[in-house]
Nucleic acid binder design. Structure first.
Length: 581
RNA sequence: GCCUCGAUAGCUCAGCCUGGUAGAGCGGCAGCCUUGUAAGCUGUAGGUCGCGGGUCCAAGUCCCGCCCGAGGCUCCA
């Protein structure tokens, strides 16, 4: 169903010049063929569409006036511009609407100009450099703009007064300051800045920027994570970030979760940035038919999701608006529930053990805002409880805290301030398979309903990284450390030897740096120590002559006369066993 | 989103109460030093004091609005 509406491109301009060149419409207005010029004006390039009327005209002008008030602009130029629409009104009707817009604009006290209707016009326009200079709007018959404000990114037209853009670049987008006074020194925001792992910027509140060293940790983490999943019989997938709104209506997110979602328009359709990965995964599942023998199907995805969280809840890496879920969906038969849940719990606890931190498990049951029947919920809750009990695990019960589509087991980890955060989660879902009609063919040659598990180990890579940073106080185990060893020549004379050792270690796939700066030994040691680098390999005359290393570890212990091969062997062992010092 | 607090150089901070030429340390750059396990010395560059408005002869400083951040509330991975 197509809604008809007037389309307007709004341009806050230093000036616009236009010159009527050729008559096009039969009802072209009388005008003089000369150059007209209006300065410091909001130009409304306007296409009147079929069925637009006086109400639409008035609404469009009122919207523009409201916007102009914010811009502190008082002058408006109504400019008939047919190219914005593929469904134009008849010229007679279009002219009426344009005239009404002019009348109403005068009524609203705006200094109003109108370019002649029905002419091909040559024009020059200088659009101002501020971000609100260009706006496109669509005013419908219902009176409200369908799309609130859509800022046109490109400075497509002429860029005048060269001052503004440079200045804006400098001041508009700050890096966020961390308030070191109130935060504990091992807070991940402080360490992240000191160790050059990630940063936060005004340009994208609640969305972290990862630097190279942060990415090294994440990639190591994910490498291990993928290894575990392959061993556990999971298959990898990847789905789009932007999906059609209809999909979210089917999944129930539109109903229950829309306040937290970001929407946009592509051509004439509504799309949403995904807040969860499941609908995408489900489409992959549905692309083929399954036998009972194919199940369980375990499909994992590192999915980037966006959720609009209230500004007051954002907190470093722990609570963000854009994060990566280490997600997986298990499609299975009802008789496989318990085994699969047990498998997932073991996967999670095994993963956490590698890092050696404490966690608590919680079982959350049906919330008020939920979908599905009582039987489905009872059976799903029973499945989770059964798995926990058969493993003999302790857990806390949170009645009413489940997801809207199913109950869940959550894994909670503490941060530096003692707050607990949910990381891993296992959610049983007996309702979404109904909505998407997910089936398999049973041994009885009849289709049966799929049961689904959503689960994560880390929950959010971002949050998990923050927890790790605080847990290790930046002193990452060697397998995760962004720089595993720093080679420190005692004086410039030893630089060559240091670089040679560096090349050897680099060849072995170790992450190293060579400090060839002309500073004192004490200075270089202190610097490496503050960077929390696991090993400092000091080389001076003695080492060069004996072809050895003086190995200082992060805890300050020094071992002299270590052969390079010996060091490589030792460090590789520690990396392989993911040893936590 | 609400309440409280905060923002000054790349980083950490002083200056604000009591308005009058924007400071220090670290880091950067240049030079000297050639060093044995947590800061060697000297010089130098670097700031529309988050953004916008107001008061004032004069605002980093006082007032208002906004943005961003922090803690808490509420919510979540």
């Amino acid at each position: 169903m197509e809604v008809l509406r007037v389309r307007i491109l709004q341009l806050h301009s230093d000036f616009m010049e236009y010159e009527p060149v050729k008559k096009e419409a039969p009802n072209a207005e009388l005008t003089e063929k000369k150059v007209y010029r209006v300065e410091d004006v909001v130009v409304l390039l306007t296409s009147v569409e079929k069925d637009d009327d006086i109400t639409v005209a008035n609404t469009a002008v009122e919207e523009a006036a409201k916007f102009m008030k914010n811009l502190k602009a008082h002058r408006v130029l109504l400019y008939p511009y047919a190219h914005l629409s593929s469904d134009l009104a008849k010229p007679a009707q279009a002219l009426e609407v344009m005239k009404q817009m002019e009348v109403h604009s005068h009524e609203l006290g705006l200094e109003t100009f109108r370019a002649p209707f029905g002419w091909t016009k040559r024009f020059t326009i200088a659009v101002k450099g501020h971000p609100l200079a260009e706006q496109s709007r669509t005013i419908t018959k219902e009176g409200r703009p369908q799309q609130k404000i859509e800022s046109v990114r490109e400075r497509s037209v002429i860029q005048e007064s060269g001052k503004s853009l440079e200045e804006m670049k400098a001041v508009m987008f700050r890096q966020s300051k961390v308030d070191t006074e109130v935060l504990p020194p091992n807070d991940h925001r402080i360490i992240g800045q000191q160790m050059d792992l990630y940063s936060f910027h005004d340009a994208a509140p609640g969305m972290p920027f990862f630097h190279n060293k942060g990415m090294i940790i994440i990639n190591e983490l994910l490498g291990y994570w993928k290894e575990l999943h392959k061993k556990a019989g999971y298959k990898e997938a990847k789905t789009p970030i932007l999906l059609n709104k209809q999909l979210w209506e089917i999944s129930g997110h539109w109903d229950k979760y829309r306040e937290n979602m970001y929407f946009t328009k592509i051509d004439d359709d509504d799309f949403a940035l995904k807040p969860m990965n499941c609908p995408g995964g489900i489409l992959i599942f549905k692309s083929k038919a399954y036998s009972y023998r194919d199940l369980p199907l375990r499909m994992y995805e590192l999915g980037v999701v966006h959720r609009h969280e209230l500004s007051g809840v954002l907190s470093g890496l722990f609570r963000v608006r854009c994060f990566t879920q280490d997600d997986a969906h298990i499609f299975m038969r009802e008789d496989q529930i318990k085994n699969e849940i047990i498998g997932v719990i073991q996967l999670i606890t095994g993963f956490y053990k590698v890092f050696g931190f404490d966690y608590k498990m919680e079982l959350s049951t049906r919330p008020e805002k939920s979908i599905g029947t009582d039987e489905q919920w009872n059976s799903a809750e029973e499945g989770l409880r059964g798995a926990l009990d058969s493993l003999g695990l302790e857990y806390k019960l949170n009645p009413g805290d489940g997801a809207f589509y199913g109950p869940k087991i959550d894994f909670h980890v503490k941060d530096a301030m003692g707050r607990t955060w949910q990381c891993g989660t296992i959610q049983l879902d007996m309702t979404i398979p109904d909505k998407f009609d997910l089936n398999y063919m049973g041994s009885d040659a009849q289709p049966h309903r799929i049961v689904m598990i959503h689960r994560t180990l880390m929950g959010s890579i971002e949050r998990f990284l923050g927890i790790l940073v605080e847990h290790f106080n930046g002193k990452f185990p060697i397998w995760l450390a962004p720089v595993q060893a720093k080679i420190i020549p005692i004086s410039d004379k030893n630089n060559e030897y240091a670089l040679k050792i560096g090349a050897i270690l680099d060849n072995e796939g170790l992450r190293i740096e060579v400090d060839t700066a002309t500073n004192t030994l004490d200075y270089k040691i202190r610097e490496a120590q503050l960077e929390k680098i696991p090993y400092m390999l000091v080389v001076g005359q003695k080492e060069e002559q004996a072809d050895t290393l003086a190995v200082r570890s992060r805890d300050g212990k020094v071992e002299y006369g270590v052969k390079t091969e010996e060091f490589i062997k030792r460090i590789k062992e520690k990396i392989a066993e993911k040893s936590i010092f």
